[in-house]
Computed example of a mutant assay.
Amino acid sequence: MDTVILAAGEGTRMRPLTADRPKPMLPVADRPLLEHTIEAARSAGADRIILVIGYEGAAIREHFGDVWDGLPIEYVEQSTQDGTADALQVASQELDDEPFAVLNGDGLYDPQSLRAVFEAGPAVGAMRVPNPSQYGVLELSEDESRVTGVIEKPSDPPSDLVNTGAYVFPGEAVDWLDVAESERGERELTDVLDRACESTTVAPVEMDRWLDVGRPWELLDANEWLIGERSRAVAGNVHPGADLQGRVVVEPGATVRHGVVIEGPAMIREGATVGPNAYIRGTTLVDRNAQIGHAVEVKNSVVMAGASIAHLSYVGDSVIGPDVNFGAGTVVANLRHDDQSVRVTVKGESVDTGRRKFGCVCGPGAKTGINTSLNVGVTLDAGATTNPGAVVRRD
């Protein structure tokens, strides 16, 4: 089945992590998010991938090429991001009159569940969630055997079954793409789904697992899922005085020095250095060529490629962008004293992360002076700096 994957957006809700790359190329375990999506699509039955690219699309082309691990890849460019229906219309030039699938490039899908969606087409992937008003909620027939429509973020949800952004459309759906702009000023794929529901039977297929990776803390969720599934594999240079406990992956070319304690699940990637005397716990990714130095503790965080947390620092429940440098003694707070969940500013609005513990988000190339303190939920923009001894209470 031809599978269209939408990967053109700017990822503004993921800023500043997307300042220099498209959101689908952010790291999840040992590969970009988009690579997991493509792999799930292939496992589900895709025999050709059509990638809709736009913002920083060259990075996607360079990574995947025209064939990825034997799977043909075609590219179409959405020059202006006018919505998901517009993205599909751009891709329709590559489609024939056969059924086709559409996936969001920032979604993680359980491969077995995705296969069930592919086999049930016309269909939409669905999942029951405790907070449906935060999603597009599916409207169902009385016996719940078919989808009749979708309502975006309703205050009074008609069900707890939400749209996961996984679709199988009949071939004639390429003639249904001329939908009007929504209230958001975009042409929405959900309006195409509404047309499909009017013209044919669309089955809701419940998925066992799915994750929308749209905001920085959801990158932690994604890594917790996929690193958590990895088996122990130690292939790098590990000092005999280091203590690796549980499901720890140390890739070839990584170095773990004397006195280090790593409590898995954790992944230390090629070229990364940990220690001496560092402590890694929770589900933590130390990406390629990152450095975790002497007496540094990192808990349940993503430390991206080339970042350096070299001396006497604490980083908890945080997302540290590429080439960030923390001065000695930088400490991240990750817990509110009132025990409320941490809030983060996303596109100018204060958003509840749903996490009791969440630290900071640091954009590419940010640098802190020695003894900087970063409060819960703060963001450092790409290239931002702090003075020695700074206490950062706001973005």
Rank of each mutant, 00 (worst) to 15 (best):
E349P: 01
D323F: 04
V147E: 03
V319T: 14
Q245I: 15
M1H: 12
G316Q: 08
F100M: 06
P388E: 08
V90Q: 11
D66G: 10
E56V: 07
E139W: 00
G359V: 06
G377F: 01
N375M: 09
E229A: 04
I292T: 07
R115V: 01
F169R: 13
A59T: 08
Q81R: 05
G264V: 03
F118Q: 06
G214P: 01
I227T: 01
A101T: 08
W68V: 07
D395W: 10
G107D: 06
S159T: 15
G241H: 09
D160E: 03
P388M: 04
M267D: 00
V174Q: 05
T164Q: 11
L34V: 05
F118D: 03
P99K: 06
N387C: 04
E142A: 09
G65M: 09
G125Q: 11
T18L: 01
A166L: 10
S318W: 11
E142H: 06
G275I: 13
A305Q: 14
Q340V: 05
A295T: 15
I268N: 00
Y55E: 08
P130Y: 02
N325S: 14
P388L: 11
D160R: 03
E144N: 08
L6M: 10
L193N: 08
V162G: 04
Y135R: 04
R15K: 13
V324I: 07
D160H: 10
G83A: 05
N163T: 06
I60P: 01
R215K: 14
I50V: 10
L374C: 01
F169W: 12
T255H: 12
G316S: 15
V361S: 05
A278T: 13
A126F: 10
D96Y: 13
P24C: 09
D352A: 12
K299V: 07
W217H: 10
G348F: 14
A266Y: 01
R15D: 03
A46H: 04
V260W: 00
L380D: 02
M1E: 08
T84Y: 14
A116T: 15
D352V: 15
G383Y: 15
G383T: 12
P265L: 04
G121H: 08
P388D: 12
V248H: 10
N300S: 15
G246E: 11
A40E: 02
D86K: 10
G316K: 05
D160C: 01
A310E: 13
Y75A: 02
M304E: 14
V150W: 00
D106M: 00
P111F: 12
Q81V: 14
P32E: 10
K153I: 07
P170G: 02
L108G: 09
Q245S: 14
P364V: 06
N334I: 03
G136F: 04
